[in-house]
Design a protein around this nucleic acid. Structure first.
Lengths: 106, 106
DNA sequence: TATATTTGCAACCAGTTGGTTTCATACAAA
DNA sequence: TTTGTATGAAACCAACTGGTTGCAAATATA
């Protein structure tokens, strides 16, 4: 089963969970109150996030606090790096090609 | 149908297509030679990318050049911003909470 | 101990996804 | 004009997704 960080952030509910956990660690029950779904659905999202190592668990009695592994988020940043290089260059290779094609069409 | 940039980059083939188009515009046929799937599958990915406005088309005779709209990639960067703020702060709120929980457990 | 709470897991389900094959259309070249 | 090439669209399919309900286990509380 494909299970990477890009798949993890593809779902809007999971992105919201990540954002909530970025502020503070929370239990599944607590998290579920923020959404319009059942606790079990949130739990399933947490399972996906755990498998991607985006969250870890902190057991406290019968409660389980989920913590965001913010370092993992850097993987997205790392992937974006190649594009950042391009968009930070005003006259990029892309623009050159585009101009070339347009010129060719005249 | 959910169709946003986060879903667009969830698929590894689509990420590869994006990376290729970042270097230079290409036709579906040309793109397909880089992958182990059929041209039609690549075409479907291009359709998703088009619907997300991540690529545009440049018609040239019977060929269609697909161009990456690199500006759109900034949306991911924008979303990451909230987390960058956190990971750039050494003693974040998250660390504080983690410490608090650990302390509480002793 | 009996009861309530927190949680994960399994089973099920409809909708989506990513792939295929087949076909029609549009343009280029012989 | 005939043939070949580039492409998108449709139909189909197995696998995955995100959701549900029901249940069992573990911990807390009366």
């Amino acid at each position: 089963m494909r299970r990477d960080i890009f798949q993890a952030i593809a779902d809007p509910t999971r992105r919201a969970i990540i954002a909530l956990l970025a502020i503070q660690a929370m239990t599944p029950n607590n998290l579920a109150t923020h959404f319009d779904t059942t606790r079990q659905a949130v739990s399933k999202h947490l399972k996906v996030l755990t498998e991607c190592e985006l969250v870890t668990q902190q057991y406290q009695g019968r409660e389980i606090y989920y913590l965001l592994e913010i370092e993992k988020m850097k993987e997205i940043d790392k992937w974006l790096e190649q594009f950042r290089k391009i968009w930070e260059t005003r006259f990029s290779q892309l623009d050159d090609l585009l101009s070339a094609i347009k010129k060719q069409q005249k």
